[in-house]
């Protein structure tokens, strides 16, 4: 059985006359890492919130279709079950600090207190989450004093400690500097390595290509396609949906450097490999750079 399934998901925010999500269906296996791309206003955040069960619960509004988590309908789960099943990380790390705690350690424990995890286990889980995300050394710091990258990893640790099977990240690095981005992406890779199903909304296509097993392209609330990065980014019509391919893919397209499957490379490593191969076979076009 698929781990996460969306079936004819439709949603309209209260007071709006356009659908934020328009008949979206897909299914995702356990442990997959799914990228969500599309221009601003295409429905990325709405989809993230629907997957985390905040739509329709938190927002109200018109809702149709369903999201199934492990075969159970998200909209019918109580708050308690839902937050053990799926975690959500937002764009702005600052708004995820509860403000009720004076240290990063207590901050990470916040969710565990709410769902009544026994004290011994709570300490074990908080420590594990903070060590995994390399923020254990900041455990005594005042949460608001952390850097953006540290704060965002603290937010992820707080979600991870709840032991969800699914973590949805809505543009988690867009407010961070290069170092912070790197830290958070490493953290996401770690989560993925723990068998957690990941949804990642992001504008940086190079990162999406490097991280995701499959990518969902949204446009005006519709799911245009959901495919592997290579297949998706090899499409000719990306610009019409307001997104662009990774620079590597753009370069390979102009030079018509394709892999054996006929698709363009999407990551640095792959592009390098294909370019090197082409050079060895003396394919001509790349020799100018020697």
């Amino acid at each position: 059985m698929a781990h996460v399934t969306a079936l004819h998901l439709k949603y309209k925010y209260p007071g709006s006359d356009t659908l934020a999500l328009h008949d979206i269906s897909f299914s995702v296996e356990r442990g997959e890492c799914i990228g969500i791309i599309g221009e601003n206003g295409s429905g990325k955040s709405s989809l993230c919130q629907a997957l985390a069960g905040l739509i329709p619960g938190f927002y109200k509004g018109a809702y149709g279709g369903k999201v199934l988590l492990d075969g159970q309908e998200a909209a019918h789960m109580d708050a308690d079950t839902l937050c053990r099943k799926v975690g959500l990380v937002f764009q702005n790390p600052f708004n995820q600090v509860t403000g009720a705690k004076l240290t990063a350690y207590e901050e990470v424990a916040f969710g565990l207190e709410n769902i009544g995890v026994p004290r011994e286990e709570m300490h074990a889980r908080v420590r594990e989450a903070m060590e995994l995300l390399h923020i254990y050394e900041y455990r005594e710091h005042y949460p608001f004093d952390l850097s953006g990258g540290q704060m965002q990893r603290m937010a992820i640790a707080g979600v991870f400690a709840m032991r969800p099977e699914i973590i949805v990240l809505d543009e988690p690095v867009s407010q961070l500097d290069p170092q912070g981005r790197k830290e958070v992406f490493e953290a996401i890779r770690t989560l993925s390595g723990h068998g957690i199903t990941i949804f990642l909304a992001e504008h940086n296509m190079e990162q999406i290509a490097a991280f995701c097993d499959r990518v969902a392209l949204l446009h005006e609330g519709r799911l245009i396609c959901m495919d592997t990065p290579a297949r998706l980014f090899s499409r000719d019509d990306l610009e019409t949906y307001g997104v662009e391919a990774p620079v590597f893919t753009k370069l390979a397209r102009v030079l018509q450097v394709r892999g054996q499957d006929g698709l363009f490379p999407v990551t640095l490593e792959e592009t390098k490999r294909l370019f090197m191969e082409k050079r060895q076979t003396g394919a001509g076009v790349l020799e100018w750079l020697e």
């Binding site: 599309g38 221009e39 601003n40 764009q91 543009e171 867009s174 407010q175 307001g242 997104v243």
Partner: peptide, 8 residues
């Protein structure tokens, strides 16, 4: 460019 998409 923060939080801007391709078009932005």
């Amino acid at each position: 460019t923060i939080a801007q998409d391709h078009v932005g």
